[in-house]
Design a protein around this nucleic acid. Structure first.
Lengths: 104, 104
DNA sequence: TTTACATATGACTAACTAATCATATGTTTG
DNA sequence: CAAACATATGATTAGTTAGTCATATGTAAA
């Protein structure tokens, strides 16, 4: 049996996981996710909370939305964003626990 | 109360999490981790299994080792690598489940 | 101690990414 | 409708990164 055929997981799955981790590995996007954990929030408010430009936040929200990690709804002039994937968030919390234990 | 002070999580933690996710978001490194889940493995064998250059694998193993995700021991001329952080691997498996369910 | 084998390392480069800037699109109010 | 507000988008750019190549280091066998 060729050693190559013993690969424990297919390339597609690797790429899917990679894609997801890449999305949640950017500090700005992580901050947005943790912020949205507390409450639904408008683009402008996220920008203020994170002390970043509106445009930067909007770009990152698009990435998060494409990955189906957040969803949005319009309310008047604002767009309100909220978490759309609680499972991923539970993973985030797990990692947070993991990381904070390593720092001890 | 200033909205900025309500940030749900400190910058340091964000950066730690970000760092960890970055390490496990590269397809090659993910493949290595899944490969090592099965068994301890030499650099050369990993390279063959993943059909990549020895040097590329060695570089990525260094990254994984710096992040304390793998460890190594020498056996004769070979260096044998194995997982050093089973918690992170359980997270990986969780994400794999998540991803494969999304694909349904 | 030469030689071959196994891995690590440093320099380099192509590809990618996050933020910025300018501006367009969409929504409400006067 | 015009003006103000809120968000989205496209182009650009500085910074990062994964892989390659050449070579150095470490180990064992002849």
């Amino acid at each position: 049996m060729d050693i190559k055929t013993t690969s424990p997981i297919d390339k597609e799955s690797i790429l899917s996981i990679s894609k997801l981790f890449k999305v949640i590995s950017a500090p700005t996007r992580l901050s947005v996710l943790f912020l949205l954990q507390k409450k639904e929030c408008s683009v402008g408010n996220i920008a203020i909370s994170l002390d970043m430009e509106q445009s930067a936040i909007s770009h990152q929200l698009k990435t998060l939305k494409d990955a189906r990690l957040v969803k949005s709804r319009r309310e008047g002039k604002s767009m309100l964003y909220s978490l759309d994937d609680l499972h991923v968030f539970s993973i985030l919390e797990q990692v947070l626990t993991h990381v904070s234990e390593l720092e001890k």
